[in-house]
Structure formats: structure tokens, C-alpha cells
Simulated scan of single mutants.
Amino acid sequence: MPRTDDEWADIARWVRHAANKVGPALPLCLPGEPQECGRNAQQHVQLWSSDLKARAHHLIEDSALSREEAAYSAGPMYKEKLSALRERAARQ
């Protein structure tokens, strides 16, 4: 889905905010501050999304009562949720 730089910047801020809610603060570099790291807003979305995914996976492992429960949540359950998101995006 094509997005403008401003739309990517909004998404990057939302993902960064979500990641900060579930773990320690992320680096301070924000879209619009290329002097900090040189990445654009779309690259920030990718970076922070991968950070959020890792934090979520760690929460799954940390909160599961067994390795099997963690494996189910991080595997089949995750794949079901991802499939539903992709289907919803395809309809839009």
C-alpha cells in the first residue's frame, strides 16, 4: 500500500509508542530527525516493528506456563492472527 512520508512518520510514532509501552525505551531517533541516524520514516516503521515483535515474543515466553504454551502462542496462534490481518488489509 503506497503511503506518504507523513503517513509513514505517523505509523512509526505509533509503533514506537506501542513498543515503549511493553518494554524499555527505544532510541530517541525519530522520523524527521535524519541527523540522528539517517533513516527515513518507512525504515523507522520497519526497525520499530521488528523491535515490537521481539518484545511481544519475549512477553509470550515470559508469561507462558510451559514451553508448549509459548510455542503455540508464538507459532500457530501468531500465524492465525497474521493471516487475519493480511485478509483484512487485502479487502481494504
Rank of each mutant, 00 (worst) to 15 (best):
S63W: 11
S50Y: 08
Q35S: 12
P34C: 11
Y72G: 00
A71C: 06
W48N: 13
A56I: 09
E36F: 04
Q42S: 13
S50M: 11
R39Y: 14
A64Y: 11
A74I: 01
G38L: 09
H44A: 02
W48V: 04
L47V: 07
L26Y: 02
E69Q: 14
L26P: 01
G32M: 07
S63V: 12
P31D: 07
S63H: 14
A71L: 12
A54C: 09
G75E: 08
A70P: 01
D51T: 10
P27T: 08
R39P: 01
R55V: 02
E61Y: 00
Q42C: 09
A25M: 12
C29Q: 03
H58Q: 15
A54S: 14
Q42I: 05
E69V: 09
Q42D: 08
R67W: 06
E61V: 07
A41H: 04
Q35F: 06
R39L: 15
I60A: 13
C29L: 05
R55I: 02
S49D: 11
D51P: 00
C37R: 01
A64M: 12
Q46Y: 08
K53V: 08
E61H: 00
E36Y: 07
L47R: 13
Q43T: 03
K53P: 01
E36I: 06
P27D: 15
S63P: 02
A71S: 14
P31K: 00
E69A: 12
C29G: 05
S66P: 02
N40S: 13
A54L: 14
A41E: 01
P31W: 04
R55E: 01
A56S: 14
N40W: 07
Q43H: 07
Q43V: 00
S63A: 15
D62E: 15
S73Y: 11
Q42A: 14
P27S: 12
G75L: 07
A41K: 00
G38S: 09
A74L: 02
S63Y: 11
P34Q: 08
S50I: 00
A54E: 15
P27N: 09
V45H: 04
L59W: 15
Q43G: 07
A70V: 06
